[in-house]
Amino acid sequence: MIKAPVRKIIPHSLVDGPGNRTAIFLQGCNIRCAYCHNPETQEMCTESSPTEEIKWMTAEEVFKEVERDIPFIRGITVSGGECTLYPEFLVELFTLGQKAGLSCLIDSNGTIDLSKYPELIEVCSGVMLDVKAWDNEKFNKLTGGNNRNVLKNLKFLSDLDKLEEIRIVCIPDEVDAEDILKGIKSTIGEKISYTNLKLIKFRNHGVIGRLKEAESPSDEYMNYLKELALELGFKKVKIT
């Protein structure tokens, strides 16, 4: 079995998707967000250079830990870093999860083209997708990466009804939240009415990147975005 670098397993997570879930955090990310709040998971690592914090584990080994939390959980969520950097591992883990009746979610920055991994999409119950910016320049400035695949995944996952949730981290000026909301609507159309939208208020807790001293947006701004989303036709909007 393939091994993946596991940074942390949280047996009972109340914040990684619907219901109570075991959350698995994989090490390594392919972008560098200026507002990343767990930058310790960014660095890629190899099996030959082991560290104390990271354990290379097979899907079976991870699932053994997950099993302890059945029947208290309704599913698992794999996050990161960027967990879609390890698609084969995810396929194996989710296959075990599905067999045990657990819903299996991916928490992703969307920069890996998921249409190339039909096997993964088959066993994955849904993806919680970050849309960090709509304009590619903004995206690049914020993350160092390119958002072409994010937009492609948005459409691809929505068409398959595997878009569990869309997330936007909100910081005025840095993030073109209004454009994101409008862009999502023009991409997935009617489906916004039943797609979960989470508007995340930026907080600089844990941030070491460029935005480490940036201020959180006001509640008024967050409510303004929520109102805008509702006007556009989103129905399931949450501010966190």
């Binding site: 219901g19 109570n20 208290f72 959980i73």
Partner: peptide
């Protein structure tokens, strides 16, 4: 933890399992 307020369904999962 206070965050559980945002996700009572998670607490219900725990109750159901227990």
């Amino acid at each position: 933890e206070t965050t559980a307020r945002n996700n009572p369904s998670a607490m219900l999962d725990i109750v159901k399992g227990a």
